[in-house]
Amino acid sequence: MQHSDAKLVERCLGGDAHAWENLVRLYSRRILNLGYHYTGRLDVAEELTQEVFLKVYQNLRSYSASTGSLQNWIMRVARNLIIDYYRATRHDKQVAGSEELEVLDFEQDSQSASPFENLYLKEKAHYLMKGLSMLTPELKEAVLLRDIQGLSYQEIADMLEIPEGTVKSRINRGRIELAKVLRKGSNPEGFAVS
């Protein structure tokens, strides 16, 4: 994997436009979703995604395969940018637990065609996002990266530059906290789907 990462980066640095486009398409989904889950707003997530790739483009020379996978490196850049944004805007508006959370229309899955299912998805997404926003930033981040982004403990540890034990602890506390928050604020039967 790291060999192919190095090759892709080499081609990008060599001015291969198609290689760069491939790289963008490969990681844009992950970055966009990370941004959305942190900020709760799609427009902000899209702007942040552009900023992340601009930074990646400008600093691609500093990537080295010996330090880890390209994905981890890009995620680290993304996370730092997103955290900076989050810290800058945290005092301006209360994103956590607010109605400003953007509820997206998840009508992207062609198999999920019925309006009821789409409404269910929207409500569920809003419910989860609201619950996540109740967590502290460290716990929220750990749960997002593990349960939504699907990263392993080691990958999260590399990305956040903290020990694996700390990652496990944060994920554990985050999940338990989230379960308690959702239990307090939900009607469990309302989300049962046959």
Binding site: A17, W20, E21, V24, R25, S28, R29, L32, N33, Y36, L42, A45, E46, T49, Q50, F53, L54, Y57, L104, F106, Q108, D109, L121, K124, A125, L128, V143, D147, I148, G150, R175, L178, A179, L182
Partner: peptide, 28 residues
Amino acid sequence: VRSQLADFPPIEPSEELIEAIIEKTSGR
């Protein structure tokens, strides 16, 4: 909680976003 988060529908980046990124970076 874990399974609900795993099922969280992902957002697909639009073609406009991809083009904007490429234009902003390599300008192609």
